[in-house]
Amino acid sequence: MKIILTQEVSGLGAPGDIVEVKDGYGRNYLLPQGLAIGWTKGAERQVAVIQRARAAREIRDLDHANEVKGQLEAVKVSLSVRAGDGGRLFGSVTPAEIVDAVKAAGGPLLDRRRLELPGTIKALGSYPVRVKLHPEVTAKFDLNVVKA
């Protein structure tokens, strides 16, 4: 089955890539999850639009990735959230909230899908967060979750 990826799928490809997958994987997982669209001649014309959007938010090269890594590791990121008396949060911290906190702290604009969290963040404290900026560059920073 030939499909066009609309989002990054690890081990398969990036948005805009045309890939060949097994029928069941495409029909039962990739298409229903919105990770891909079926390949047609009309859809193939949309690939250029998807790739242009991808290039706009993509890290340009290895030097740019290292520059962003330096900016990110120099920033102290703190996120204020509502929490109960025992330090447990009302809900959990999402990648979108972390990206907003990095931007508010003066850091670079990040793609929330590239964040690697240590798990679900449901309590106050300090958490290590990794960001995969480039296939060869991964930045690390500490996220301090504090009571609002």
Rank of each mutant, 00 (worst) to 15 (best):
R112N: 03
L30V: 07
L30I: 01
H134Q: 07
A96M: 10
K103D: 00
I18V: 14
Y29C: 05
E8P: 00
R52I: 06
T94F: 09
L31E: 05
G106M: 11
V81T: 08
S10T: 07
I98L: 12
V77R: 11
T40E: 04
V99W: 04
P118Q: 09
S126V: 14
K69N: 09
T120Y: 01
M1N: 08
R27P: 00
E116W: 03
S10L: 06
G84R: 10
D23E: 13
G91C: 12
V75D: 03
P15M: 11
I121D: 04
G107M: 12
Y25N: 11
D100L: 13
D111S: 02
E67L: 12
E73T: 15
R57P: 00
R112C: 01
E44Q: 14
G86C: 01
I59P: 02
P128G: 13
F90V: 15
A83P: 00
A104L: 13
G34R: 10
G125E: 04
G16N: 02
K122Y: 00
H64C: 02
V129S: 00
Q71N: 05
R45E: 09
G107F: 07
K22H: 13
H134K: 09
S78Q: 14
P118K: 07
T138H: 05
T138C: 07
V21H: 15
K76E: 15
A96W: 08
V137D: 01
V75P: 02
Y29A: 11
A43W: 02
I18L: 03
N66F: 09
T138Q: 15
N28R: 11
P108C: 10
P108E: 04
E8I: 00
V81Y: 04
L72Q: 05
R82L: 08
G38R: 15
A83K: 02
N66W: 07
L124Q: 08
G24F: 11
H134V: 09
V131D: 01
K41Q: 11
P15S: 08
E97W: 11
V129M: 08
K103V: 13
R82I: 06
K103P: 00
G119C: 11
E58A: 15
L79V: 03
G125W: 03
P118S: 11
A43I: 04
D142A: 12
V47Q: 08
V146F: 10
E116R: 10
A43Y: 02
E116P: 00
I50F: 14
I98D: 02
A65S: 07
A56R: 13
R82M: 12
G26N: 08
A48Q: 12
